[in-house]
């Protein structure tokens, strides 16, 4: 349920991006998903498969998910550690004064697409 809601919003954002970049065909979408972002990647793929078939832009395109590892920083000893393994307590010094540095993201990293020529020439070719 939660994943489906996110897919619907992703589709809306992609529709806008497609207009901005004069996309004529979408090959793939790559998302960077944080390890502790709350998105279950398998469920997300299922939701994508279900929903993308109903959307003319997304139909037939591939969803690629890249996981960003979760890293926590310790305020007390100034070291970082793996969030999923140790949680909120720093494994180096035992302090609870810790903060998530990365791993909560959910970002559209890039898309692979065919585009119509843009008169302003603003698109970057990579």
């Amino acid at each position: 349920m939660h994943e489906m809601g996110i897919v619907i919003h992703l589709a809306k954002t992609l529709d806008q991006i497609a207009v901005e970049h004069h996309v004529t065909r979408l090959g793939s979408v790559t998302l960077s998903v944080g390890e502790v972002s709350g998105i279950v990647t398998d469920l997300f793929q299922d939701a994508w498969r279900y929903f993308s078939n109903k959307n003319p832009l997304l139909a037939g395109s591939e969803l690629k998910l890249e996981v960003i590892p979760a890293i926590t920083y310790c305020d007390n000893c100034h070291k970082t550690y793996e969030t999923v393994k140790y949680g909120r307590t720093c494994p180096h010094c035992g302090s609870g004064e810790t903060w998530l540095v990365q791993g909560n993201e959910c970002i559209i990293k890039e898309i692979e697409a065919e585009t119509a020529p843009d008169p302003s020439g603003a698109d970057q070719e990579v």
């Binding site: 991006i17 970049h21 970002i107 559209i108 890039e110 697409a113 698109d123």
Partner: peptide
């Protein structure tokens, strides 16, 4: 096909 780099949040349109 070309790659378009975006770095946009998934919920950007809602935001």
């Amino acid at each position: 096909m070309k790659i378009i780099e975006l770095k946009e949040t998934i919920t950007a349109s809602n935001d």
